[in-house]
Design a binder for these strands. Structure first.
Lengths: 351, 351
DNA sequence: TTAATGGATGGAAGCGTTTTCATTAAACGC
DNA sequence: GCGTTTAATGAAAACGCTTCCATCCATTAA
């Protein structure tokens, strides 16, 4: 319950000096600083952040907007952001948009505008121009991860290119009958990521002169269980089977691998599977994948936001952008494990 | 940028009346209310929550402390809490304790004390008496989920009883060689849940006069991949194999099922597997489990916290506890699917 | 008609900090 | 030794709301 006044009187100093001493400002004698700190400790003084924020305009609070908190990518980003903010002494206010559209609009219209946030980190948020306008209207740094946002600093991976990479890997091994598991309609409404990866797939296939078969384009909800069902549909057919599957996420790739086992298909002998993500499961199941590091992306996003706060102009040391918005591509790594191999019967069919 | 003053002058009202009008208080004529709302809308006025909180003492902000954000249980709880708070117009400040002990202590010592939170929801937090003291020192409602906390309202499931239930189910089917996969040392340090479930298992085994074999007590980190490795150790042995496995979580149960497949063991013909949780994967893989609903628990926890704010005494309508701390057991459901069956060769061995 | 009641209103006093500004004391250069 | 920086300090003014309190006016009761 002790306020800064009590601390001041106990330390025999003025309120102003105590405030300066405790917040590490200059122009305080070491003796006063010690006195203030001792008194504060003895009284168990913790500054009221409301009063502090009101007076100083700094909130020590950053907002994170995520579409979901269950999916691996998002919870990993969240973890990275949380870690960095905790270290910096910042609070993290979480807005989980979820499925309900009214949550979405109330977050954008009310919550984000309440001047409680120093900055906003938006993960994979697809916004209309109007919504972007609302967001920018708060005049706070905005950092976007996994999807560019006009006017915001962006941290991203090149989903399309990575999808091409993964697909080319299969093509390079000699596969021609390649299936793709992408996000389903519900997901694609809100994220462009599945479409980007699908586009990369399509482009790579076209470049290799391979035909896309409609029946080999499956959709699922980016979960193991969803892709397992999709995989059963894809592989359980009596018609011709694909010899390789490119799944738009590692979890979905694992789902496909599990479905394959159900039909007695060996991976990679009978079926090659490749994913994208770098999920922990990928290592366990020997999945070839393009590994990204969402936790690291989260850390970088938080660090970027913090840097923008220190330096609102956004030009720390002669960086490229003058308006504070910069675009960073986060490094990824193609990890070849043993879920991909040359197609079965290559010699018999081709030789 | 508009403040309440601008709104007041535009509406031709006093600041006081505008404040009352916009926050839905009584003693405002409908005309003044309309005038205030119109002016506010026209100016795009959003109240500063710092000023508001400072003046009123209400923060509209609830803190959630979780040990991790990656595990299914925690992210599900988080989702439920977030949902309910969003509907109530409350902000959610997330503290992800994670692995680092210094984060743990800074959360308890600094973050939670900054008077920014109206209430705290703690998930599966094991605290020392001293730490509990610190928490209670904030004099805010505290709600605990998944682990009791002295002095806090608690929402929990009876992990020990549920584990007994699951084990008894296997015993009832005729199994005698039952293995258990529990949490590993690192996890058990911070959570008592694995131990509780293990204890339920042990008790049920003892009650049935069955011996516990040390080599059939495996540990993993509550992930699919961890339990997969543990399962390979458990089942890949040349020594006698268990005929049933009780895994302390559904994800671990799935890991064990996957390991079983590697050795050509059919579930449930060769091996019965039972879990606890009600994870989405359980349905896909036909896993018998005790289903809890962490999302619902999260919703309930948030609702409980909000109720305590409206009624600090904690006696909404003659409830049991007088000090505001009540203990609610959340309902669970035993779901029998097809991962459990009578042990193999029962007739041959026993008949 | 007068007194009493009660709803609507505005002025102003907080809420607990930070920060500006003026002041004082000390250190410095010449 | 004197004027001039410079560091340290405290008084007081924000910060932008909420809410207490006093006031006013329109009712209703007596």
């Amino acid at each position: 319950m002790a306020g800064i006044k009590e601390v001041a009187s106990r330390a025999g100093l003025s309120v102003a000096t105590v405030s300066r001493a405790l917040s590490g400002k200059s122009n305080v004698s070491s003796r006063s600083r010690r006195l203030a700190q001792e008194a504060a400790r003895e009284l168990g003084f913790v500054p009221s952040y409301h009063a502090s924020s009101l007076a100083s305009g700094r909130n020590h609070n950053i907002g994170l907007v995520v579409p979901s908190v269950q999916r691996w990518y998002f919870s990993s980003v969240l973890e990275g952001v949380s870690e960095t903010l905790l270290d910096a002494g910042y609070d993290l206010t979480l807005y989980n948009v979820g499925e309900q559209p009214e949550h979405r609009s109330s977050i954008l219209n009310d919550f984000l505008l309440r001047k409680r946030l120093d900055a906003v980190i938006a993960v994979a948020l697809v916004l209309s121009e109007e919504e972007i306008g609302q967001l920018l209207a708060v005049h706070r740094p905005i950092v976007a991860i996994g999807g560019a946002l006009r006017g915001a600093s962006t941290i991203r991976i090149d989903d399309e290119r990575l999808a091409m990479l993964a697909t080319r890997h299969l093509i390079g091994l000699g596969h021609t009958r390649i299936a793709h598991v992408t996000g389903d309609a519900a997901l694609n409404r809100d994220f462009k990521l599945p479409q980007l990866r699908q586009k990369g797939f399509t482009t790579a296939m076209a470049a290799a002169g391979l035909t896309l078969r409609q029946e080999w384009q499956a959709t699922a909800d980016f979960t193991i269980q969803g892709a397992y069902a999709a995989g059963r549909g894809l592989l359980g057919t009596s018609a011709e089977r694909p010899t390789a599957v490119f799944a738009a996420s590692d979890e979905m790739a694992v789902g496909v691998m599990l479905a394959a086992r159900d039909f007695g298909l060996q991976v990679p002998q009978d079926l090659s599977v490749v994913g994208i993500d770098g999920h922990e499961l990928a290592e366990t199941f020997g999945l070839t994948t393009v590994s990204q590091d969402p936790r690291g992306q989260g850390r970088l996003a938080a660090a970027t936001a913090l840097a923008l706060l220190d330096n609102p102009s956004g030009n720390p040391d002669g960086g490229p952008a003058a308006d504070g918005a910069r675009d960073q591509e986060y490094p990824t790594e193609f990890v070849i494990r043993n879920s991909t191999a040359v197609p079965p019967d290559t010699s018999a069919r081709r030789g």
